[in-house]
């Protein structure tokens, strides 16, 4: 600035004419034109290769990345929804199955209950029958053994009576009494 101001003071008077007229004094600056053109084209080429190209590349890459991310997110959202639906259906099925199982178990328990009761009833019936049978048999056995005893007793009595000269009628009477007594004792 200072330099310029110094030099300007000296040349203030001649400032006006040449500088403001387009191209005046300078003539035709063919060299400048060629240089500017060449420089601009070189700059364009260099920047395209080293700066704008990579920058555009990364912006493009980012765009693609974002697009793919959005796509992936959309996809996973759909997948999650599907999974949720599936899980829901599965849960429903499981619940239904559990209910069925419980119902079946209840039914089976009921059946088993009636079965067991019936079996118990039959068993008790059978036991009763067999007990009755046994009792009857025991009675018969007892009767038989009694009869046999009675017979032997009677023989003993008879032998005693014979010793005492017992009449036939007395003997009959005696036997009957014994039998009667034996029957009543039972």
């Amino acid at each position: 600035m200072r330099k310029e101001s110094e030099s300007l003071e000296g040349s203030e008077m001649i400032v006006t004419t040449n500088a403001y007229v387009l191209g005046a004094g300078a003539g035709f600056n063919g060299g400048d034109i060629l240089f500017q053109l060449a420089m601009f084209i070189i700059l364009l080429a260099l920047l395209k290769k080293f700066a704008w190209g990579p920058l555009m590349g990364i912006m493009q890459q980012r765009e693609e990345h974002i697009a793919s991310e959005i796509e992936a997110a959309e996809k996973s959202r759909v997948e999650a929804n599907q999974l949720l639906e599936e899980t829901r259906a599965e849960l429903k099925a499981t619940r239904l199955e559990a209910q069925n199982t419980i119902e079946n178990a209840k039914k089976m328990g009921e059946e088993q209950k009636t079965e067991i009761i019936a079996a118990a009833r039959a068993e008790s019936e059978r036991l009763k029958e067999s007990a009755k049978l046994e009792i009857a048999q025991e009675r018969d056995n007892a009767m038989n053994s009694l009869r046999e005893q009675v017979a032997s007793l009677s023989v003993m009595i008879a032998s005693k009576v014979i010793e005492k000269e017992l009449s036939a009628a007395d003997q009959e009477q005696l036997i009957n009494d014994y039998i009667k007594e034996a029957g009543e004792e039972r």
């Binding site: 300078a26 600056n29 060299g31 400048d32 240089f35 500017q36």
Partner: peptide, 10 residues
């Protein structure tokens, strides 16, 4: 061809 260069521009 005479090319004129303005060195300041260059």
């Amino acid at each position: 061809v005479t090319l004129t260069f303005n060195l300041s521009n260059i």
